[in-house]
Design a protein around this nucleic acid. Structure first.
Lengths: 106, 106
DNA sequence: CATACATGCAGGCATTTGCCTGCATGTCAA
DNA sequence: TTGACATGCAGGCAAATGCCTGCATGTATG
């Protein structure tokens, strides 16, 4: 997985909205997704392109249409790499803070 | 929580590296963090500023030094809002895909 | 075939981003 | 107090980003 592409893809509100739309109803076409997005079709295409490069969505052509499907795997990997890790450290944080504050002040 | 600030803060490799450094050793000063970052101090300051605005780190002044501590809460909220949600949908995705493909092709 | 429809591709442009340099402020220690 | 150290703040600049317009390609349907 390319961490950077995933995070950069998620860093835009329009792209997160597209993921939400696909979560509500998976497998939508570009045209369908455009209906709920307040921008031109070509801009939506660019956003979907970044999401696809980050492997957050997969596409299937059906005739002249292109269907878009969410791929949750990169999100899970982000969780495993970045979130669960910090969760494990959570209990140590207050201890670290207390220790550090006391280190040079006593 | 401000979703957008958190995602934008995480969208930069340098800022993710800073979080990693703080995960290894919490409560470091700006100067300490600069030692492992290949850029000027002022740039590191900017990155830390964005992380702090996203509430991903908290700071404490100790004399002329400024200590930086990770705050894992926004990460957990990202997980709850964006990752766990899609995880729950995970099992439905293949079903949706199959259904959509069959919808107009039969 | 001819037309309409769904999408692809290229280029322009204003804004944001990330890094820099230069200087100012605040704090410790002799 | 004075000099050294840690950080804060402002402005410049090249690159990346996000949105647009215009046109090209491919596909279904009469």
């Amino acid at each position: 997985m390319d961490d950077d592409k995933v995070f950069k893809a998620l860093a835009d509100a329009s792209r997160r909205m597209l993921l939400d739309r696909l979560c509500e109803r998976n497998g939508q076409t570009l045209g369908q997704l455009c209906e709920t997005m307040d921008m031109k079709r070509q801009s939506v295409t660019q956003h979907l392109g970044l999401l696809e490069q980050a492997n957050l969505i997969s596409t299937v052509r059906r005739g002249r249409e292109k269907l878009h499907f969410i791929n949750p795997v990169p999100l899970y990997e982000v969780y495993a790499r970045w979130i669960r890790k910090f969760e494990e450290e959570r209990l140590n944080l207050l201890h670290d803070l207390k220790q550090e504050l006391e280190r040079k002040q006593t």
